[in-house]
Computed example of a mutant assay.
Amino acid sequence: MLDSDLFLVLGILVSAFAIPAVLSAFADSRPPRAAALAVLVGGGLILLAMATKPGGYTPGQIPETFARILARFLGH
Rank of each mutant, 00 (worst) to 15 (best):
D3P: 07
S4M: 06
S4A: 15
D5P: 03
F7H: 14
V9L: 03
V9T: 08
L13V: 12
V14S: 02
S15M: 08
A16S: 15
F17S: 11
I19H: 09
A21V: 04
V22W: 03
L23I: 08
F26L: 11
A27Q: 12
D28M: 06
P31I: 11
R33W: 13
A35T: 12
A35D: 13
A36V: 04
A38H: 04
A38C: 07
V39F: 05
V41S: 08
V41T: 15
G42S: 05
G42F: 02
I46G: 06
L47R: 14
L48T: 04
L48C: 14
L48E: 01
A49N: 11
A49Q: 01
M50T: 15
A51P: 00
A51K: 09
T52R: 05
T52C: 02
K53Q: 03
P54C: 00
P54N: 03
P54M: 00
G56A: 15
G56T: 07
G56S: 11
Y57L: 03
P59N: 07
P59V: 13
G60I: 05
G60L: 09
Q61S: 11
Q61P: 03
Q61N: 03
P63Y: 12
T65I: 04
A67F: 03
A67E: 15
R68K: 15
R68E: 05
L70I: 14
A71V: 00
R72M: 06
R72P: 08
R72N: 09
R72T: 04
L74P: 00
G75W: 11
